[in-house]
Amino acid sequence: MGNIVLKNVSKSFGATTIIPDIDLDIADGEFVVFVGPSGCGKSTLLRLIAGLEDTSAGTISIDGRDVTAEAPARRGLAMVFQSYALYPHMSVYNNIAFPLKMAGESREAIDRKVKDAARVLNLGAYLERRPGQLSGGQRQRVAIGRAIVRQPKAFLFDEPLSNLDAALRGTMRLEISELHHQLKTTMVYVTHDQVEAMTMADKIVVLNAGNIEQVGSPLDLYRKPRNLFVAGFIGSPRMNFIEGAPAARHGAPTVGIRPEHILVSRTQGEWQGRVGVTEHLGADTFLHVHVDGVGTINVRAGGDVEFGHGDTIHLTPDPAKLHRFDGEGNAL
């Protein structure tokens, strides 16, 4: 089926090292998300798996077979690109049929598989159109259709949703997750958006400067970030970090507390501050509170708290949800 193993994989372009040394196991059927800031090497890692780049050292195996030196076409993977990379001169039908034609399948088999994919992806009405006549979301679905007809060992997604608007991104996220449940095929998904990572992944791989910072399930990373980088990257709004004396009172050089784990009161609490900007989202209210000696703390309060600009407020971090970090930034 489709398990992927990376051993001591590294990649350099000339003197620039993009990926120093990575080991990674991706189990069959798993939905793995590579997440990290731009330039962290996540796309390069995906392209190494795809075979679009040569590894500088190390081995990549799929299903226990070493594919390090194999051409992309031989690896039995399918990829969905950021720009969709549809063939502009072919109809939607021919775009989806292309990999099947390349595999030399019969005309009847191609027709059946393309129609199946089109039905799954709601593309039935557009089969004769050219990609240029489709909306962003439709193009995205064609790209996915082209990937699924091959019945690959694994799907590779390279930031597939970054060219869509926010509403469509939400919809497509659901569709891809749904697809994964239907097909139960390994998926490797690259994104810089931690929301996509949290909502879709079985396993998240957080990358920074070509190194794996932490691997785990979304809730693992949320609850037990291994270091400051992961703590700051996973979770929205971002975790508050406090240093110096207020942190020392909790027994660490740096402590972190998520906005949703802070208790708000008008009368008493650990920190006293003044309310700055408040953002009412209806269900939630985000308060930006200026606390002397601590800094600006973001707080996620319920929808019915009524604080205004300049009000005095008392904050108490939930001690059970407090994250402590040592001088190197590693979790204690």
């Binding site: 950021q82 720009s83 990379a85 549809l86 063939y87 990999p99 390349m102 082209r146």
Partner: peptide, 27 residues
């Protein structure tokens, strides 16, 4: 011509010849 399209063809299993014939030339 976006390079990603050529990569897509390669991922789709196109040989060099079919890549040139079906994807590159028409574009």
């Amino acid at each position: 011509i976006p390079g990603e399209i050529l990569e897509a063809a390669r991922m789709d299993g196109a040989s060099l010849v079919s890549e040139i014939l079906y994807v590159l030339t028409p574009m």
